[in-house]
Amino acid sequence: MKLAAAVLLIFTLVAFAAPAIAPYDPRATPQSETQKNLAPTASHPFGTDQFSRDVLSRVIYGARVSLGVATLAVLLALTLGAAVGSLAGYAGGWTDSICMRLVDAMLSVPRVLLLLVLVATTGPLTVPGIILLLGLTGWATTSRLIRAEVRQLKERDFVLASRATGTPEWRVFVTHVLPGIIPQILVSATIALATVIPLEAGLSFLGLGVQPPTASWGNIISDAAERPGDAWWVVLFPGLAIVCTVLAVNTIGERLRIQFDARSAARTARRDPIS
């Protein structure tokens, strides 16, 4: 847990301080003919790619893009998910039915497929475009969890009592229900993060995500996909960065779940992200 938090903290710092840390300009192709596809050495600890760019610097700058995209997309997805989930759960009735059918439809399409279709209709994406797409496709799971939580909270004595005394609905919601769903939102955040980081990497790997020359962990890897096997360093290091981040997020998420959600063991594993 501590280790996981430390990993995330370090990666975040690296992302923020990228210009200060990176040994080279991640886009510079100084010796495009002689210095390309170099194995790791002291001057290039992670080697160089096919354009002679320093892979370490690209991974460092890639942290900015990959983590930034993931964080913002998750924020968007959580906001949407919490809003829809709260609305459906609290209002009930028709609103609930309509929202949940929409959620059913969203969840019935594998997210990768949905993203493929969206990318097919938009063409190569800008970074804000990717954030938007990942956010817009990621809220359904969250909203379902939040809805369940809100429905439970709604029936609790203190909420019923508060409503009985004539407190306005919005006020009941803000004072009694909202605080109750925050743990669920935190747990959802870790699930969403652990899903979005590999997704962004996967899309970029397929050439459909962040577009070069901007570096993201996914497209650093896809830059190397043209070199069969012999430029392993271009795949391994960004790959490790992805795995470490997601593992750290998963570890923290698991701890949070145990802490906040000890009641229902069965629900825990159901949310294991593997896609």
């Binding site: 996967g202 790997f205 397929l206 096997g229 392993w232 790959g239 795995v243 997601v246 998963n250 992200p273």
Partner: peptide, 23 residues
């Protein structure tokens, strides 16, 4: 198991393609 869950499919597939198949 948790680590495996943190590896994107395409990385596993790339590794499987690079070593047991191609190498």
């Amino acid at each position: 198991a948790l680590t495996l869950l943190s590896v994107p499919e395409f990385l596993v597939a790339l590794a499987a393609l690079a070593l047991p198949a191609a190498r």
